[in-house]
């Protein structure tokens, strides 16, 4: 697979179909890959794709237009299913011109979640990682561990329906096809069953961990505003302290801003340095939108997004009286 990917990318660069290709290379830590920006053919061999390729690289298509939009006319980008759905979002929201992006899909088996792995090793540092098929082998100073891959994949991957890029120009390897997930919203329905006091306690407890570093926002493909509401100080919309009352407003507003746009790529979850459960609320909103409007973000480039369209027969039971 990886050889085919490298060959394709080399061809794209050689034929001048793209000016740059964004992919992943081996990172400096055993559990990490790192974004790779390829300008020259000789760098192509650094490309990798495996279960450490957590980053949703599409965030670079909008975050720094000075770097990618203007200097480069044509950008090639390697994507997992969820990443490709972000590009659909960009295209619908007119952040990119679809014809300027060459989407290279790769078959994704899910990516590793650091937090789950560290739970397995009881926070002991991992010095070596090997993945063969369905097992992950971890080596540390005093341990040598083998665990099923399924137990350490991101939650987003475990409930992923669309592992293949729904939109792509090139697809490397064999697509996995749509997966029928039965209990996609199990965590959400379990959460809904709790009393409102219990839910509030959970949310408060989680958001009190936040250090306001905005890593979640900055890696999020749906968060591309030139100026975020938390950064505005004239007027200042929300407090900037790490107190839970301030953090919660940041997170819940962000939650609503990405409603019907979040593709559940898990980028925010894996970026969070303090392991906050950022997914539960996003997934809850996703479920609401699915139930009310039968809309799934990032699948169809021609479909109007849920929050930007109106139908007369939509459920309106939230209107009182």
């Amino acid at each position: 697979m990886i050889q085919n990917l490298r060959t394709e990318v080399k061809k794209l660069l050689k034929d001048k179909k793209v000016d740059i290709v964004i992919g992943w290379e081996k990172g400096s830590l055993p559990l990490s890959s790192t974004p790779l920006f390829i300008h020259k053919e000789e760098d192509v061999d650094r490309l990798i794709f495996d279960e450490t390729c957590r980053n949703n690289l599409t965030t670079y298509l909008t975050k720094d237009k000075r770097k990618l939009g203007k200097t480069y006319d044509k950008v090639g980008i390697i994507v997992k299913g969820c990443d490709a759905r972000s590009i659909v979002l960009y295209s619908i929201e007119q952040q990119i011109k679809r014809e300027n992006i060459v989407i290279i899909g790769v078959p994704c088996n899910g990516v590793l979640e650091k937090k789950k792995i560290l739970q397995k090793t009881e926070n002991e540092e991992i010095l070596e990682l090997k993945i063969d098929g369905k097992n992950v082998h971890l080596k540390g100073r005093d341990f040598d561990l083998s665990i099923p891959l399924n137990e350490v994949l991101c939650d987003s991957c475990l409930t992923c329906r669309y592992p293949d890029a729904p939109v792509h120009d090139i697809f490397i390897g064999k697509p996995r096809k749509e997966i029928d997930i039965k209990d996609e919203y199990k965590k959400v329905t379990d959460f809904e069953k709790k009393s409102s006091e219990e839910r509030w306690e959970y949310i408060k407890e989680e958001y009190s961990k936040c250090i306001r570093c905005y890593a979640c926002r900055n890696v999020c493909p749906a968060c591309y505003c030139n100026e975020c509401f938390v950064d505005q100080n004239d007027p200042q919309w929300i407090g900037k302290t790490p107190e839970v009352t301030d953090s919660i407003i940041f997170h819940l507003i962000r939650n609503l801003h990405v409603a019907g746009r979040c593709v559940d790529c898990g980028a925010c979850v894996s970026a969070c340095p303090v392991d906050l459960d950022l997914r539960i609320m996003n997934k809850k909103v996703e479920k609401e939108i699915k139930e009310r409007f039968d809309y799934t973000a990032g699948l169809d480039i021609n479909e109007k997004p849920a929050m930007a369209s109106y139908c007369e027969n939509e459920k309106q039971d939230f209107i009182m009286g």
Binding site: T34, P35, F37, K63, K67, V219, A271
Partner: peptide, 17 residues
Amino acid sequence: WDEIAAKCVNCGACAFV
């Protein structure tokens, strides 16, 4: 510096830890 900064997403995680 462009090469060094290319992948930075400008969050404050590094500074805050």
